[in-house]
């Protein structure tokens, strides 16, 4: 999480407030896998589920590793695609 008083931040994941510098620091340490970055930083785990940050992070990974974008593995697209309230889930599925 970025410091509130820091200035001129470049945000890569808006939902989780992660900066591009934080992502690059991990990549420099050898974390060149989107799945690992997600677990370490929570990038892509907010309300938008990576719709904004995933393409940006994939570009960072491609640039850092010299691999083409198409060869960077993505994370799993699990259900649900958008946040659902627990109360809605607890209401059960309509099986009429």
């Amino acid at each position: 999480m970025c410091e509130a008083n820091q200035k001129d931040l470049t945000i890569i994941c808006r939902c989780e407030d992660i900066t591009v510098d934080e992502v690059r620091a991990y990549i420099e340490q050898g974390v060149t896998d989107l799945e690992q970055l997600k677990r370490l930083l929570r990038v892509g785990m907010g309300p938008c589920q990576g719709r904004t940050c995933t393409p940006l992070i994939v570009n960072e990974l491609a640039r850092a590793t010299g691999r083409p974008v198409r060869e960077i593995p993505l994370t799993v697209f699990r259900q649900p695609t958008t946040p659902v309230k627990l109360g809605v889930l607890a209401g059960g599925t309509d099986h009429e």
Binding site: D8, L9, V88, H95
Partner: peptide, 28 residues
């Protein structure tokens, strides 16, 4: 606020697209 399970014989996905964004200082 209700969940429905739908079993279609055919499915057409027409979900469209999402906007891309850019990285630059103070982009938030």
């Amino acid at each position: 606020k209700k969940i429905f399970a739908i079993k279609p014989e055919r499915l057409i996905i027409a979900t469209g697209g999402a906007e891309k964004t850019l990285l630059f200082p103070n982009n938030d």
